[in-house]
Amino acid sequence: MEKVIEANELTYSYGKNLAVDHISFYVNKGEILGFLGPNGAGKTTTFKMLVGLLKPKEGTAKVLGLDISKEPKKIQRRIGVCFEYTNLYEELSAKENLILFANLFGIKNFNPYELIEKVGLKGKENDLVKTFSKGMKQRLMVARSLVNDPEILFLDEPTQGLDPVSSEEIRNIILEEKNKGKTIFLTTHDMYEADKLSDRVAFINYGKIVALDAPLNLKTKFGKRGLKLKLQKENGEIYEKNIVLDKDDTLENILSTFKQDKVITVHSEEATLEDIFIKITGRGLKE
């Protein structure tokens, strides 16, 4: 598998505050790597180093085989970047914003309408960005990150603060790009988003990667599977019971429960990424 992002002991500090602490990881071509962690964990600093906006204080990283410290501009020609904050030109129209960036990438015969339609803003091409809702702006930001048909998409909290419908639309665009074979580096503190989109997730906490694996593997390794049952006794009393799976007495426990009382409902349960994050780090993702 071709590694398109490779970080080795990557470190950054703001004065004495160590924001990213010697992290190493890689991202395979065509993969979505979710970078999961609470606010201030070091996600955005890592993101900024990888897209060439910050120079690492220590360590190295290669994007598309190029050193981020030595050849950031060569890298930036081939990547798309979407920031966590809205940084569009509000006094320009959606079309003007896209054309500006296409021109900066030196793209000839750029068609902004195609991208605008792709992100669901058809009919809004000539509207000034300042008249857009947050969701519309975020969709335009995603469109802007695609103007140069990038090989890797760097997305920093792309759905932060959006309503569920807008969030889902952006997630669908991300999956669409993945299906085209693009590599995606996604930072988020939304465990649902990371779980749904990522091939692998990296947990980052206080600047260090504390776990990195496929979501399912992390759940298997750190989480507990279980059954949640609603039962009714002979006297009509209703109660709930949890049975932990994958233990020696699990089968016996299930059989005796089913024999003993009337089963009303059964739900399977598995640990969420947030549960696992808390288990590993002792703090929640929303802190």
Binding site: Q76, N87, L104
Partner: peptide, 14 residues
């Protein structure tokens, strides 16, 4: 303030 400078700097612009 609008951080558009970061959007520009993440392109080939210096």
């Amino acid at each position: 303030e609008n951080k558009t400078i970061y959007a520009l700097l993440s392109t080939p612009v210096t």
